[in-house]
Design a protein around this nucleic acid. Structure first.
Lengths: 227, 227
DNA sequence: CAATGTAGTAATCCACTGATTACAAAGTCA
DNA sequence: TGACTTTGTAATCAGTGGATTACTACATTG
């Protein structure tokens, strides 16, 4: 019933505030708008999205969105920063959980197990609607003087995580990111819409999400849903 | 010196016509506009690109672009159709060349050799400016009622090529497409701009283009170039 | 309670962009 | 050569969207 899905921490009070019509602090509002922005930018892209759509999704007026972030460009920069931050936090948590797990099988499989945990975390991020697509859009704006530079920095940061923190070698890291890009693409394509109807698509989809399939099908809105 | 790179066949006469100011048939003009559209859509995305930019890149007036394609949406659909068609043509040619090559090493390496040829063809397509990025943009528009459906069809067609025509099994095909998506992403990010300056980026870049590196660096415009 | 700061909106502006219309010039062919 | 077709443009329109301005209402603090 609530207008927006909570995501832990102080979100409950935030939702309360939204529901009761209480005014929020600008920081609370900013966070709320960022969540809406990630959903809208993810579905429509940077140029395709309008600040008015974001405002409506966040339940505020369009001028307020612009005032809180200065400009649409700044809003997008904040959105990709937020999305990337969430992703790295999730990755680091998955990695830490793996390392803390002592009863894991030793040796060769340890690396596989870590990879599986991170992969799971990546798929779990589908709960943040539009996150993967927003990042994918950002990655396509390399020609943009401001956004392009930010996107490159973010992408390099992910690479650094796999290489330095996770300890993958170059080929492993590349294969890992490649799988991630494919998954992002299939999310952006909304291939899930054709799941079950086209056998080829079904096969491709199953191949990408071997274990998480039910979870993915559940997390992704399907059918005529606008997003 | 010529305003546009020729791509075989009747392109020479096309360039002549453009240079001498001769009027073109509507079909010639359409092909020329499509090439410009792929470059512009690739750099700016569907919403970010304007029909006026496409027109200027093609050397015609904006209304004429709209008239020849009916609408911007139709132009984009034609552009991704064209891009995908070129890609599949290149892939089939590479596959045929591989199959015709009788003095290839038999057995296990045959499949690797085919994969390498197709990969090379994929990288060679960088010569068609904006092709990879235009397709990548299309793949992110899954929510769009018309473009989304077309993009899904195109994506499924590529999958079908790998599975049926090239004969890859599911895991191989997935890994292949994943690498392709990663390459597209790095092209769209213009990561090449940071090549050499950031060691992390250089490493990532080298990993993606192990053999074709000089070729790639040559094919991609760098620095402050608008595209 | 007065005063000041903060959250938030309505109205509006202006630049941009896709599309349309009306027209001109070049080519084609009987 | 003259009618007709096709290529192509200039001018302009109407809708849209980001930003600005001016304003209101709520909250906080001395």
């Amino acid at each position: 019933m609530s207008s927006s899905a909570s995501d832990g921490s102080a979100a409950a009070t935030l939702d309360d505030a939204v529901d009761t019509g209480r005014r929020l602090s600008s920081d609370e509002r900013r966070r709320q708008i960022l969540q809406a922005a990630i959903a809208v930018f993810g579905a429509r892209g940077y140029e395709g999205a309008t600040t008015d759509e974001v405002a409506r999704a966040a339940g505020v007026s369009q001028p307020y969105v612009v005032r809180l972030f200065g400009s649409k460009e700044n809003l997008f920069l904040a959105a990709i920063e937020d999305a990337l931050g969430r992703m790295l936090v999730a990755f680091r948590a998955a990695l830490a959980a793996h390392q803390a797990d002592e009863e894991r099988e030793p040796g060769i499989t340890a690396e596989k197990a870590a990879a599986q945990r991170i992969g799971q975390a990546y798929v779990d991020l589908l709960a943040v609607r539009g996150l993967h697509q927003t990042l994918a859009h950002a990655y396509l704006l390399g020609s943009h003087p401001v956004i392009g530079a930010a996107a490159r920095r973010g992408f390099a940061e992910v690479w650094r995580f796999f290489r330095d923190e996770m300890g993958l070698d170059v080929d492993e890291a590349r294969a890992f990111m490649a799988e991630g890009m494919l998954i992002s693409t299939m999310i952006g394509l909304r291939i899930v819409d054709d799941y079950g109807s086209d056998p080829q698509i079904t096969e491709l989809f199953r191949s990408c999400f071997p274990t998480e399939l039910p979870h993915v099908l559940d997390a992704l809105p399907r059918g005529t849903d606008r997003w």
